[in-house]
Design a binder for these strands. Sequence first.
DNA 1: CTGATTAAGTTGTATATACAATAGGGGCAT
DNA 2: ATGCCCCTATTGTATATACAACTTAATCAG
Lengths: 249, 249
Amino acid sequence: MSDNGVEKPQKLYEQIKQYLLDGIASGQWPDGSRIPSEHELMEVLGASRMTVNRAVRELSADGLLNRVQGLGTFVRAQVPRSALLEIYDISEDIQRRGNVHKSQVLLLEAIRADEALASAFMLRRGAKLFHSEIVHFENDVPVQFEARFVSPRFAPEYLNQDFTQQTSNRYLQGIAPPSEVEHIVHAVRPDERAQALLEIGPHEPCLQVERRTWTEAGPATRSVLTHPGSRYSLGSRYAVADWNAKKGG
Amino acid sequence: MSDNGVEKPQKLYEQIKQYLLDGIASGQWPDGSRIPSEHELMEVLGASRMTVNRAVRELSADGLLNRVQGLGTFVRAQVPRSALLEIYDISEDIQRRGNVHKSQVLLLEAIRADEALASAFMLRRGAKLFHSEIVHFENDVPVQFEARFVSPRFAPEYLNQDFTQQTSNRYLQGIAPPSEVEHIVHAVRPDERAQALLEIGPHEPCLQVERRTWTEAGPATRSVLTHPGSRYSLGSRYAVADWNAKKGG
DNA sequence: CTGATTAAGTTGTATATACAATAGGGGCAT
DNA sequence: ATGCCCCTATTGTATATACAACTTAATCAG
C-alpha cells in the first residue's frame, strides 16, 4: 500500500535543510557565497519564516552555514570530518586514498565466553560468542589486524558471511546501527602474533584502537584494531561549534 | 518572565537551558529521571512553550536529554566526552582522576621560523614565532611532553605567562577560541629527548598527538604532545546522532 | 476476563506576528 | 570631503495558537 516515494523526509524543515544542502552540493552556492535570505526562502519554498529559520539555524549549528545578523547567511567552507568519530570503514578509507584494499580472514568461529568476555557482554560464563580475526592490506601491505567479538543476539548470521567481499564493519552497520560507540586509542608494542601478521619488528610501535558498541539491548561488539605506527595514523579536523566569523566565512 | 532578579544571560532560552543544566548538575533530576514537561516548565519559568521547546530541543541535540514523544523528557546518562575532540586541558583531565598535576617549563622563547615552520604558519622565512616546551606530571610521574609553536599575532603576550600556574592550553583558549582544530594521532618511538624527559626506554611506544589550530586570521598554534603508551590513552565515547531510546535512556 | 476504544498527557511540527539587534548604504548638514 | 543620522534589509528572539503523532491509562463492550 505504501508507495512511499522515499525521497521525502516529510518534515518541512528537513526538506528545507535538504534543499539547502543540495544547493551547496551542486555548487549553486559556492563556499563563502550568500544564500537567499529567510524572506526569499519563504517565498520560494512557501514556508513560514519560523520554519525556514529553524532549518537554517540547525544547519548553522552543524557548521555548514554561517549567519551574520544584519548581513545574511553564508556557505561555510567544509573541512574533512573526523575519521575517529564516524563509524569508519577501513576499506573506504583505503579506497579514498586511491589504493587497493584486500583482506584475509584468519578466523571466523563460535567460542564460549570466559570470565572477562562474559562480564563485558553481560552474559553468563560459557555463553556463545562469535569471534573473528581479519588482516587488512593496503596495496598488499598489512595495515590492520582486526580481532572482534560479536554477540550472537546482535548478529546471528555473523559466521555465514564472506568478509573478504564485505567488510565486517560494514556488515554490522547494515544489521543495525549501534546506539553507542566507544573508542580508546593506545600506543602499544605488538605481541608476537601481531608482529607476524603485520610483518613488523618487535619494537615497532602500534596504534591500537579498542572499539566497543552497544545497542538498546546491551553490548553488541568489542574489537581490537592494531595498526603499525609507521603505516597508519588517525586524524580529525573540525570547526568549533560557536564559531563566529565575518562575512562569508 | 518579568523582572526576575537573577543575572541574565539575556536570552530566555539560554536561561532555560542553564536552569535545566543546573537541575541536572545538582542531582535534582538524576540520570534517567524525567524532567518537568514543557507545560510545567512554561508555568514555572513563565515562558512560552515554543521557547521552552527550543531550550529542551537544543539540549536534546547536544545529547544531554532524551525526548520521547508522548512520554516525556529524560536525563541522559552522560558518558565522558571525547577527549580527542573537545579542547581538552591535561590539567583538568588529571584532576578529574583525583590526581595531582604539576608541570615544568623547559623552554619559553622566541625563535625565527625555518622553512617548514614558515610555510606551516603562512609567514615569511625568519619571521618571529614563540616556542615552548613543557613537561606535565601526574603524581610526579611524567605523562606528557608538550612542544608548541605559537603565532605572535595570535598571542602577543605568550612569553610573559607562568605556565606552571595556568596551562598553556587554557591560556590560549582564554585569548580567543580557535575557529578550527586538527588532531592527528600517531604511535611512535620516542626520540632521545623524549626518552629522558618522560623517563622511558627507547622501545616504549608513545602516543603522539599533533594538534593544530586556526583562527579567522590564519594559523595560530601547532603542538606536538607525546605521551608514554603505558601511562596514557585517548578515549571517546558517544551516542550516535539518531539514537532513539526507550523510556529513561 | 479480554480486547477494543477512548481519553488525557506529552512531544513534534507549522504558522502568523511582533519587536530587538546588527550591518551597511544613502543622504544630509557642516 | 567628513561626520552624523536615518532608513532598510537581515537575522535573533519571544509569543500565541493550532493540529499531528505518540504513549499510557482508563473505560467500555463482549
